[in-house]
Simulated assay, not measured.
Amino acid sequence: MNFFIIILVTALLQLFGPWWVVAIVPFLVFLIRHTSASNAFWTGFALITVLWMAYGFYLHFVSDGAMSDRIAGIFSLPNGVVLLLVSALIGGLTGGLAGLSGQLVRRIFIADAAKSVSL
């Protein structure tokens, strides 16, 4: 279920919002929904990586690589595909760390609520 929520909401918000919306969605999903810390990180990482890779390859093939190859040249990368891989890795780390942060914040509030109830 987390898969569908994150991928659909992030894809829609990416059309209208800034790039960092990929951090908000996994954070909120794992703040609300319970899972383990490692699952939160790897789910956020994988979904955002796949989303950015898919959209990047779509743009790459639509423009015959012209846009991504030119941007890769600015960063002294060999070609546009390497740029897409680096971008997907950065997006994946952002999504993974956001998901982990959401899960850890949830754990803090759940622990505080349990302590206040037991007092």
Rank of each mutant, 00 (worst) to 15 (best):
A113Y: 12
G99D: 12
P26A: 09
G17P: 00
S101H: 09
A11G: 03
S118C: 03
L59S: 09
N2S: 12
G56F: 07
A11L: 02
F109S: 04
V29H: 08
I24Q: 02
F61W: 10
L51I: 14
W20E: 05
D112H: 07
L47Q: 04
G80F: 13
V21W: 03
L84K: 11
L47F: 03
L85S: 09
T43N: 09
V82G: 05
A54M: 10
L51Q: 11
V21C: 07
Q103V: 02
G99C: 08
A23Y: 05
S38Y: 10
V9A: 07
L47W: 04
F61M: 07
P78A: 11
R106Y: 05
L83F: 14
V25R: 00
L28D: 01
I110M: 04
I48H: 04
G17C: 11
S101G: 15
M53P: 00
L8E: 00
G44M: 02
L12P: 03
L83V: 11
I5M: 02
R107C: 04
L97G: 06
V117L: 13
M1C: 03
I32A: 10
I7V: 14
M67G: 05
N79F: 10
N2M: 07
F61I: 01
R33H: 12
D64G: 12
G92W: 11
F3C: 03
A37G: 10
I6E: 13
L28I: 13
R33K: 13
G65E: 03
S101F: 13
R33G: 06
F57K: 10
V82W: 13
M1T: 01
V62P: 01
M67A: 11
L28W: 03
A98H: 06
N2W: 08
R106L: 05
F109K: 04
S63Q: 03
S116M: 08
S118V: 09
V25P: 00
L28G: 14
N39Y: 09
S76A: 09
D64S: 13
V62M: 06
A98N: 08
V25W: 01
F27M: 09
R70V: 15
F3Q: 04
I5Q: 00
F30R: 01
N2A: 14
I74H: 14
V81F: 06
L15E: 15
P18S: 08
T10M: 06
D112R: 15
V25Q: 00
H34Q: 09
D112C: 09
L77R: 01
V105H: 04
F4H: 09
I48C: 01
L85F: 15
T49V: 11
N2V: 06
G56P: 01
G92K: 14
Y55V: 09
W42G: 05
G44F: 06
L47K: 04
G44Q: 03
V9T: 07
R33W: 13
I7H: 02
I90M: 15
H34D: 14
S38F: 12
T94R: 10
S76P: 00
Y55S: 15
